[in-house]
Design a protein around this nucleic acid. Structure first.
Lengths: 343, 343
DNA sequence: GTACTCTGTCGAAGCGCTTCGACAGTTTCT
DNA sequence: AGAAACTGTCGAAGCGCTTCGACAGAGTAC
């Protein structure tokens, strides 16, 4: 194991000089710097993380807490996690992966042990147990999601209200009057993760202004569940001409079922989704969608957290503006065919 | 920040005694232990991770290197990652998340900086750059996957050859004679990640023994790609009566397309998949499948790595036996309808 | 030429923990 | 009763690094 002292000896300088070369916190003459850098390279020196953390009280680690739930939108979580890890590395940080399992105790543990310099929390609920602890913590934290009370915290999320509104506008603009929302599984609403409710609020409000009739049904992602929900929708609102889907797993089954029922998309019925772009683009009918920008969210969260660590950012909520991409699954409202009058 | 010394003073003992209470490496009288433990609880003490790592040269961190590729089987990766994190926590370890981006340099960095005590690598290629470094490293490593030469390394993976064989057996047992394999995207084969090739080997070998005709086509997961592949298959082998799918994303499109073409599953054509159980169970036709046991793999990898850290395990390859679950998508080979002879 | 300011380097202290050897006090053996 | 073996606790050293104050030497100001 190569140590700072080894490098110092090899370069013929003192240990502190090597340290200053590494950190840049004091000026070093060009010749000394070069000599030290050569020694570092030759010896293959890497600073010991523990010693560094102990001496500087900075671990250069960011903790990322992901939900444990294995039932839901894993791809989005994974994309965020990868974006977080990649961005963090770019800023010289490593990422510690925590699962939601430990709950608030994890926050305390990280804080107490100085394992990480900061935390990023995913899957935040409206009244999350971890938030009070995070507010008191001496280390910065950033949420991906939006709790009921974001005071004293930094948050990054998609503006789901605006996303909902955007959907309503798009469909209203195409002349639709009755639309159905295929939502997340009921459990998601019960957990009050917020994003689903916010989408719904946005949809409802804008729909009201635009004179759309809205029907919302939570729905599991399985084929059978989508089939049941669809049947119910047409039963309750036969005049439905457009769907908004906010459940990644439900889009494919929905398209398959509509096709099976002889309803052409978008000629007979329009479908739009709130989901990652990749998914929308690869569906059996490329879907008009509002993107869930997983990568961007991960990147923003890290940048926010790093900014706070460097003391050049305050708390605040960042809501990313939703972007609508029109693909092939939405079209004008079909002209209602007048029933053939029996003569 | 509460330190060991604070606890010691509060409990009226020396620092070393507190340390021994924590580690259990020397015997401590029951009364002292109780007193110390009460102080720890009262003060809310957490050992400083950096100091601990420095003094003991063990960080209690396991590094997990996941692929950066955002194109492929993210859910499986995520499931493994979550299982790794959960299991590791159960053994007192935290997990550091690295992306494949850094490549071999990451191995060197972890080794040099003593950031982690051990590494788990995912998405291992047959001739992986990281392996030589890992073999020389002083810290144990475990691969999830199977490289060309596993000598000097520990590996955990599904026995994909056996999985392939199992598929062939199942279909042969139902009387099928011509089967088509819808494989992973061509890029996966080109990358030589191994698992796809191994599956194919298993399928080929057993098919040969059982007199099955096999057709293999790599295929992207998008709807359009599956449609093209399917058309090609029926063009080249009109007598195909069963499909084996090894590409999570392709199953749904395949089922939808078959339905669309008026081919009933399993009456007219059988479909089986190699994919996580959850996915198979929720498809539009519940799929007979060989499970990819993501969680089990993650758990095994951690247990192996912990065993090595504790000096009670050697290198070795663990191939998990595949398990076939018969659901509703496979049935006996349809009786060929003799063409109606024109009279 | 004296007084001052910079610049570049060094030595030493100390971060909070683990661990080794020492040792007082108690048991057990003979 | 004395030797031998434990038990339970303590003090001190040291893990590899950062950082503070000190200081020699060079440059600048008057």
């Amino acid at each position: 194991m190569v140590t700072l002292a080894d490098v110092a000896q090899h370069a013929g300088v003192s240990a502190s000089t090597v340290s200053y070369v590494l950190s840049g916190k004091r000026s070093i003459s060009a010749s000394t710097r070069a000599r030290v850098e050569r020694s570092i390279a030759q010896l293959g020196y890497h600073p010991n993380a523990g010693a560094r953390a102990l001496a500087s009280s900075r671990s250069n680690i960011i903790a990322l807490m992901i939900p444990l739930r294995t039932d839901m939108y894993l791809p989005v979580m994974m994309e965020i996690a990868i974006a977080v890890a990649t961005t963090a590395r770019g800023h010289g940080y490593d990422v510690l992966l925590l699962t939601g399992e430990e709950g608030p105790a994890a926050v305390r543990r990280i804080e107490g042990s100085a394992l990480a310099d900061a935390m990023i929390l995913m899957d935040v609920e409206l009244e999350d147990d971890r938030l009070p602890l995070l507010r008191e913590a001496s280390r910065p934290g950033v949420l991906i999601g939006l709790p009921a009370d974001p005071a004293g915290l930094s948050c990054v999320d998609l503006d789901f209200e605006a996303a909902g509104a955007l959907c309503a506008e798009h469909l209203a603009g195409l002349g639709h009057r009755e639309i159905a929302v295929i939502g997340e599984a009921a459990a998601v609403y019960e957990r009050h993760t917020g994003f689903a409710e916010r989408t719904l609020n946005g949809l409802r409000e804008r729909s009201g202004e635009l004179g759309l009739r809205l029907l919302h049904r939570p729905c599991e992602g399985s084929y059978a569940a989508v089939a049941a929900t669809l049947a119910r929708v047409y039963d309750e609102r036969p005049g439905t001409t457009a769907f908004v889907v906010q459940n990644e797993a439900a889009t494919d089954p929905l398209l398959a079922l509509l096709r099976q029922q002889g309803r052409a998309v978008p000629e007979d019925v329009s479908v739009m989704a709130i989901c990652p772009d990749q998914l929308a683009a690869h569906a059996s009918v490329p879907l008009t969608s509002v993107a869930v920008p997983a990568q961007k969210m991960g990147r923003h969260a890290v940048e926010q957290v790093v900014a706070k660590l460097e003391g050049r950012a305050a708390d605040g909520v960042v809501l990313l503006a939703p972007e609508l991409t029109v693909r092939e699954s939405t079209g004008p409202r079909p002209v209602p065919v007048p029933p053939v009058s029996p003569r």
